[in-house]
Design a protein around this nucleic acid. Structure first.
Lengths: 331, 331
DNA sequence: CCCATGAACGCAACCGGTTGCAACCGCGAT
DNA sequence: ATCGCGGTTGCAACCGGTTGCGTTCATGGG
């Protein structure tokens, strides 16, 4: 592999000139630059990144932080893939590489390990798989990072989030518009911010439709299918005449549908169901699930772009992406 | 951030001694080593990786090669995630980092871009998303790499693959054992090696059960649900009394089941169905799909470990991992 | 005609590690 | 007392880029 010193010799100039020519420095004359670049191309020159990074004191790498895989976690569906893909393209477009790192819940050294050693310039973390602890670690280390998902009310770091309020509103409005009178709400953990937002959206839709909100129509779970079925059961007991339900996750929604079937209700004839996430099996469930989907690739791209911007300018941005309704058969 | 020069000053020794102590060089006395490491720990020392890589001429990074995300490709299910996770843990355990790179079909420069610049030491590629072209590029560049999936008969590079033969055999045997007499075969593309292997396994199971193989019972598709349904339709026309079918992919299997239902057959009462892959929706299909699953995390770990071994010793290994039957309701 | 000015480029230090080789130590053997 | 030797440690070069500053040369203005 050739070095810029080799190119310099070939071109009859100095290392500095080659370096500058390759980096589009205005200090170099047009003719010289062209000649040097031609030689570089001709020899398939590839700059040694390690050396460059050493000099520049930056790696042009951002790390996507994930937890170690938990078999029971297989829920990590296609959306993660989509987001990763988006992050990757967004990063590459800006000259950055994507590092995938796995951490354990109790590990608090990882920030230093990657930032201090210069293996990464910044981080992308997922709110879903990330404790408050981890976030504090990041801010204390003064690490550049961006987070996907809902964040505490007061925060001073970058983020990209789905529009949970709009998602909840759209879902509920869809059912109300098609004539449903008593639509219930099944959430994830009540303290999860995105769940609260979806609930607020649900409420807004009810209000706009002139419908009364009822406490008897809301129930919470923990995103597990079992909890979805349990919540459905509870609702049915308290309000047997409900004719629609907005569920905060597809997996819970599918479990809820099974529960409905078990109790002899037809979906969507008797009760409409709309889920959230549009996981891959949503399209193949019985009946195919109407649900709210977020644009994964877009989310990824925004995560990448905003982090890079933060890296370059220090700007901290908070953007939210739309949540779209995909209508199938269940509502 | 401190450098080894700083540590050297603090410890009253030279840079070289610090470097050696930190790298467990046998040249350093036990006492000195301990003292230096203590100081390093105390100051939360993190070695500058860029500098280290420049000296060592290796990055301790391997790149996982993926294609840019294609929306119509959403099939890239949980298995990819599992495999990635496995690769990640396997790599970290060996002191390597995982880089995620995306390439386009016509890009032929990527090998040089990453290898020549020292951004990665080796590659992991997926047979499924990888043309013969890409492989040639890799071998010509003399790049260290390992591939997941079936490879051409003659090859001299590392690989990890699922045991398709055993998978096909197990699937067919399961149905035969439970009394099915005429079990059919629906494959993916006939020229795909893994499909051929699964077919051979299917044949072996028939032979072992003393059953006659029939050409009328085999049909091929292209992994798309539509092709699965079409294949099922064709089989039903030719051999209306079949009572079992082994399908080369879950998505096709689910489509086949829908076709069976459409024609008034019950699953599994009238005809048993076994799929392949155990995608996330297999557990939730109607009826829940009996299928063949491969251990993604294991595959990933093996990919990582064997590539690292190749990097260190040059050994080229070809390993295959088991394909396990997961029995649900469809067979 | 001379000097200030700026464009284009070279010199050499620096980034922070690694490593071959020389230097030094105390020791038992000759 | 001298020599040889194994065990430790330091010196300095090297990895391949980047960049502040000085140098060279042509040009335009006084």
């Amino acid at each position: 592999m050739k070095t810029i010193a080799d190119l310099a010799r070939l071109a009859g100039v100095s290392k500095s000139t080659v370096s500058r020519a390759l980096n589009d420095s205005p200090l170099i004359g047009g003719e010289t630059r062209r000649r040097i670049r031609a030689i570089a191309r001709e020899h398939r020159f590839q700059m040694n990144e390690a050396a460059r990074r050493l000099s520049l004191k930056q790696s042009q790498i951002v790390a996507l932080v994930t937890y170690a895989y938990q078999p029971d976690w297989a829920v990590a569906d296609a959306f993660s893939l989509e987001i990763m893909s988006g992050v990757s393209t967004g990063l590459h477009a800006n000259g950055y590489d994507l590092l995938l790192i796995q951490i354990t819940p109790k590990d608090t050294e990882w920030v230093g390990r990657y930032l201090g050693s210069g293996r990464a310039d910044g981080f992308i973390v997922m709110a879903a798989s990330c404790t408050q602890q981890h976030i504090s670690t990041l801010v204390e280390a003064n690490a550049p990072f961006i987070i996907w998902g809902s964040m505490p009310a007061s925060h001073d770091y970058c983020s990209v989030d789905g529009d949970s309020f709009a998602g909840g509103r759209t879902a509920a409005a869809h059912m109300l518009r098609s004539g449903r009178r008593r639509v219930a709400f099944i959430g994830g953990p009540a303290r999860a911010r995105e769940v609260q937002e979806r609930y607020r959206g649900y409420l807004a839709a009810l209000r706009e439709a002139g419908t009364q909100a009822e406490d008897a129509l809301v129930e919470y779970g923990d995103y597990s299918p079992a909890s979805g079925a349990a919540a459905m059961r509870a609702l049915l007991e308290r309000a047997g005449d409900l004719d629609g339900v907005f569920v905060s996750s597809d997996l819970m929604a599918i479990a809820a549908i099974e529960e409905l079937h078990a109790q002899g209700r037809r979906v969507p004839e008797d009760v409409a169901v709309v889920g959230y996430d549009d996981v891959s099996l949503a399209a193949h469930s019985d009946p195919p699930l109407t649900t709210i989907r977020q644009n994964g690739p877009l989310a990824g791209r925004l995560l990448a772009e905003n982090l890079v911007q933060n890296l370059r300018t220090g700007a901290v941005t908070n953007v939210t992406i739309p949540a779209d309704l995909v209508v199938r058969k269940s509502a």
